[in-house]
Design a protein around this nucleic acid. Structure first.
Lengths: 357, 357
DNA sequence: CTGAAAGCGCTTACAG
DNA sequence: CTGAAAGCGCTTACAG
């Protein structure tokens, strides 16, 4: 079907080496006349070099894999995941790399994903939000494939991520500084690495401030708006209804707000809500949230992987500061039960007030 | 670095053919004992078959390309593009295909993209919203690579797309039925195929109803919210300010609404606004809009390409009906100038009123 | 400047 | 059941 250098060589009575040299302008010199002849015939025949064959020899295919390791479907379901992917795509375009998205995640055969990744079709990979205990991560670490983590958890040397602990702490401390004591939390998808840190930090800060964390105050979500809505319904119906909710991301925060409002409760009148990410809708909905530089994180991870391929230097990883953006979804607690305590709580260091964007 | 069947063969004193047969359970039989031996050593060595080498022979690589043909950056900038990609990714996961996203679009070398696509790293491609006059499309048509268009324009046999003309007509007729006569339009990115049809249909309906379309009533946007905002500012300042705006997509409609509101004009009090797509935010913002099944369109296109690879049947294409969703951003015209005319205008056939989702 | 040859890592007829 | 050989489409030392 498609023509090959062999065909060109035969038609021109040349060797395939000469054709290859002519087509690639090297590495050996070729006479002007022959080069012209070869290139012309190649164009006529609609010749396209087979990159597979070339890559088999060179060992490079100029393609980086992106692996949403925990996702089973709808990997672009949330604005934040779209932003993560977009950051990687932009970096790819700048570096003239293509992106192979590994979508086939079979829960029953986790090894299959890794087989897929390590079968030489990519020069490196960016893993999105893996857990440190993920078997896939371990296998990739053991391979020689260049990789970096994006939006993964603390504590991995090649990870690019927001300071989840700092961000979560800022959110919870901020709520405490407003006088809230009954503060609940909706977690993200527990299969994702960042989710656990935000939850653990929430628990830690609460304990440290000697505030109670009843089991029912931690509801497991999945980063989707609907899970926030379900959590909000549960919170709204509690006897000891929380006066503030720290949500693992913005989408769930929107769901929580929907649920409370539908229950006839006002935000922030009856309940304060804080999100995480600062997606575009957050400004629009006046959601107080923790901002992270979504696009930059995956972009930097992508660049670092390509850099390792070129220079051998392993991705140094990076931690990006989180910034609490104060908007209209939070307000002082309805009735601060312990004024003394609420005075002692420090306000977090960096707060951006009434941010429009 | 990575081990090969050659290495396994040498260590076990077998031929590479036998190793291959053992590893693949065929196509030739191998004795139980040998098979076990081979598989065990393969596991020990961490052997991974090189898919490039295999694909070079089989001609299949189980990967489909996605080409956002007109995009130069931020290919996931809008909710609708995220939905398009998500639909393709979901289809890929179901069919166990990987997805290669072609991000490297050099405006100066449009042919490079095609070279990239046709160099045998994908078994087929889905082109997102190409124009029919795009040179890249022509080259792909001339190649033997299976392909389909998604969200492309009318009139291509392998295209999966909403009925843009019907959708645009529904939007404009609806505004006319509300008594509007000064109706303006913000186009999408002119490099995208769907954009031109929506604009042409707007012009056609206006002409047919004998309504004027001054040049200034058509503002060229790019599907991004900011371009809608800029268009909105221009409209708001016009002497003959339009009383209704039909926007090429939802994001630009939000921008238009922002601009009008910032100018102290109310939506829908002073101006009615209609979008296109029905992205999640539309319900939230009470935007009247034209719904299209974003995820299904790319999903079906993807399935059709894979089907062609397997059966040889070319993608039959499909046109999906558009549905006007009536919400709060539209209202009767402030002062219908020609009552007679506004009575004659029919309301479009299918309208879904006050849709929540 | 040109060519014959080896090889990238596999698959698969063709022999035994 | 096992092996020697050809070949997928290229690149690149090695000779001339």
């Amino acid at each position: 079907m498609a023509s090959t250098i062999k065909e060109i060589a035969q038609r021109l009575n040349l060797s395939i080496s000469t054709v290859s040299y002519a087509l690639n302008d090297g590495p050996k010199p070729v006479s002007e006349a022959v080069a012209r002849q070869v290139k012309e015939l190649a164009r006529e025949l609609g010749y396209r070099p087979n990159r597979l064959a070339k890559s088999l020899i060179t060992g490079r295919i100029h393609t980086i894999g992106i692996v949403p390791i925990a996702a089973e479907a709808d990997i672009l379901a949330t604005p934040s995941s779209s932003a993560f992917f977009n950051g990687a795509f932009n970096a790819a375009a700048r570096l003239r790399q293509d992106v192979l998205v590994f979508t086939a995640h079979d829960r029953n055969k986790p090894d299959q994903v890794v087989d897929d990744i390590l079968d030489s079709r990519v020069d490196g990979v960016v893993l999105i939000a893996p857990r440190l205990d993920s078997p896939a991560l371990r296998q990739i670490e053991q391979s020689s494939l260049p990789y970096a983590l994006a939006a993964g958890p603390e504590g991995h040397p090649h990870c690019y991520h927001v300071d989840d602990a700092q961000g979560a702490r800022a959110a919870v401390e901020y709520l405490i500084s407003l006088g809230h004591r009954r503060i609940a939390h909706v977690t993200g998808n527990p299969a994702l690495g960042d989710s656990a840190i935000r939850r653990d930090t929430y628990v830690e800060v609460m304990r440290h401030r000697q505030l109670l964390v009843p089991d029912e105050y931690i509801v497991i979500g999945d980063y989707l708006r609907a899970s926030g809505y379900r959590a909000g319904i549960r919170f709204a119906e509690m006897k000891d209804r929380p006066t503030a909710i720290f949500c693992g991301n913005d989408d769930m925060a929107f769901g929580v707000m929907d649920a409370f409002r539908r229950a006839g409760l006002s935000v922030p009148g009856h309940v304060s809500v804080v999100g995480f990410d600062d997606t575009p809708l957050a400004a629009h909905e006046q959601l107080t949230t923790v901002r992270q530089p979504l696009q930059q994180i995956t972009g930097d991870a992508f660049n670092a992987v390509v850099n390792q391929i070129q220079t051998g230097d392993r991705p140094p990883g990076a931690r990006y500061p989180a910034l609490l953006i104060e908007r209209g979804s939070t307000a002082p607690a309805p009735e601060p039960p312990f004024k003394a305590l609420s005075r002692t709580a420090r306000r977090p260091d960096s707060i951006l007030r009434n941010a429009v964007t």
